[in-house]
Amino acid sequence: MRDLPSLKSLRAFEAAARNGSLTAAANELCIGQGAISHQIRILEDNLGLSVFVRKQHGVELTPEGALLFASCNRAFDDLEGVVQHIRPRNTQKILRVKVGPFFSMKLIAPRISQFLAENPGLQIHLSHLETNTPATGTADVIIDYCLHPPPARFSQRLLRERLVPVCGKAIWEAQVDKHDLLCGNRLHYRGLQEWQSWIASSGLRLTPSRQDLIFDDQHIILEAVKEGQGVALIDRTMVEYELRSGQVCLAHDHFYEPNETYQFVCQEELFRTKPVTKSFLGWLLQEIGDRQRRYAEIAHVGTVG
């Protein structure tokens, strides 16, 4: 007989550790927060140590808890892969994908009907994954923005961003000195680092911006750019439509490549046994490749004049 804590307590612990919150774990497992707390106490009593440090706005893993979480994560992922493999074949017609909302909106949604037409009867379930959320859960595929893909899984790089400064058409046409345009209002995604890296790699001598606006939503940044609120760094692949339609212009053609990349991640076993997973990866790579090949058509949009 295996000397292990109960599966119920381990499941409650894994959900709480992954979400960083007992409340979120309770919501995910459709039970009360008190039940989650009770299972955690059972687990800690069994182990004779604490797995969490309780914080005001959630929980934080102890060193021992972090070791247990890593092991639970691997075990549950393996179990999930086997369950998906042995389920009846009709479940092969469902593909569950977790992906960041901006990537989903710009690269998947515009032409996903083409992929569905090539795979009759397939259902695609898209759910949004915050960028800083670990790539775990019940999805077949995770499209994760990360420095290193998770170990012990199949992964394929989809896209390394090429961040370029873009601005609205109106302020591009109104600004005679294009160099000065880059020193105006700068719009940032979550922090100042990307602009600092872009300026350093460009070799340009730019004065500090007149105003720095920091957002945590790339959709809002793009809308602010189109409305003339400033200049933002956005991957060229993500703004191809706006560049082609003239809604935004390139403020400069220098690009900066962050070290993080978008990665297609799934279980090795699932990739081998669920053909639609491989088909979806091929379609994504084709879509991204087609967009990048069209760069030549828009290379000078907004830079000539």
Rank of each mutant, 00 (worst) to 15 (best):
109 A>H: 15
3 D>Q: 04
161 E>V: 01
3 D>V: 09
46 N>G: 05
207 T>Q: 15
265 V>S: 00
81 G>V: 10
301 V>P: 02
102 F>T: 02
302 G>H: 02
214 I>K: 03
185 N>D: 09
304 V>S: 14
95 L>D: 07
183 C>Q: 15
79 L>Q: 01
46 N>W: 07
270 L>P: 03
231 V>E: 03
193 Q>I: 06
72 C>N: 04
184 G>A: 08
212 D>Y: 04
163 L>N: 09
231 V>S: 12
76 F>Y: 15
69 F>I: 06
290 D>V: 12
144 D>A: 14
301 V>A: 00
134 P>C: 01
280 F>G: 00
42 I>R: 04
75 A>C: 11
162 R>A: 00
148 H>K: 15
276 V>S: 03
297 E>C: 08
219 H>C: 10
232 A>P: 02
302 G>F: 06
166 V>W: 00
174 A>K: 13
8 K>V: 12
222 L>W: 00
6 S>C: 07
296 A>P: 04
267 Q>W: 05
21 S>A: 02
79 L>D: 03
121 G>R: 10
279 S>Y: 05
120 P>D: 12
199 I>H: 12
304 V>P: 01
67 L>W: 15
72 C>D: 00
58 G>Q: 06
61 L>N: 12
108 I>R: 01
267 Q>C: 07
163 L>G: 06
227 E>Q: 09
107 L>V: 13
224 A>I: 02
303 T>W: 07
6 S>A: 13
68 L>F: 05
21 S>L: 04
301 V>G: 01
254 H>V: 08
104 S>V: 10
14 E>F: 13
198 W>G: 03
260 E>D: 14
142 I>E: 01
36 I>Q: 14
146 C>A: 15
13 F>M: 08
129 L>R: 13
48 G>E: 12
80 E>S: 12
256 Y>A: 11
213 L>P: 06
221 I>K: 03
186 R>A: 04
49 L>Y: 15
197 S>A: 15
7 L>C: 02
206 L>T: 02
8 K>W: 05
157 R>M: 15
65 G>W: 09
12 A>W: 04
104 S>W: 08
74 R>F: 02
146 C>I: 08
138 T>G: 01
136 T>L: 11
159 L>S: 02
115 F>H: 09
256 Y>S: 01
250 L>P: 04
253 D>R: 11
147 L>H: 07
275 P>V: 05
29 L>G: 04
254 H>R: 12
100 G>C: 14
44 E>S: 08
220 I>V: 13
219 H>D: 10
235 D>A: 07
248 V>S: 01
271 F>S: 00
172 W>G: 01
188 H>A: 05
207 T>I: 13
53 V>S: 07
37 S>Q: 09
116 L>P: 11
148 H>W: 08
220 I>G: 00
174 A>I: 06
63 P>Q: 10
145 Y>Q: 05
276 V>I: 05
295 Y>D: 15
287 E>A: 14
179 H>D: 13
150 P>G: 06
304 V>K: 01
168 G>H: 11
146 C>P: 05
73 N>Q: 14
153 R>G: 02
266 C>M: 01
125 H>F: 10
167 C>H: 08
261 T>K: 05
92 Q>A: 10
290 D>H: 08
111 R>N: 14
96 R>M: 06
230 G>S: 05
206 L>A: 02
209 S>G: 10
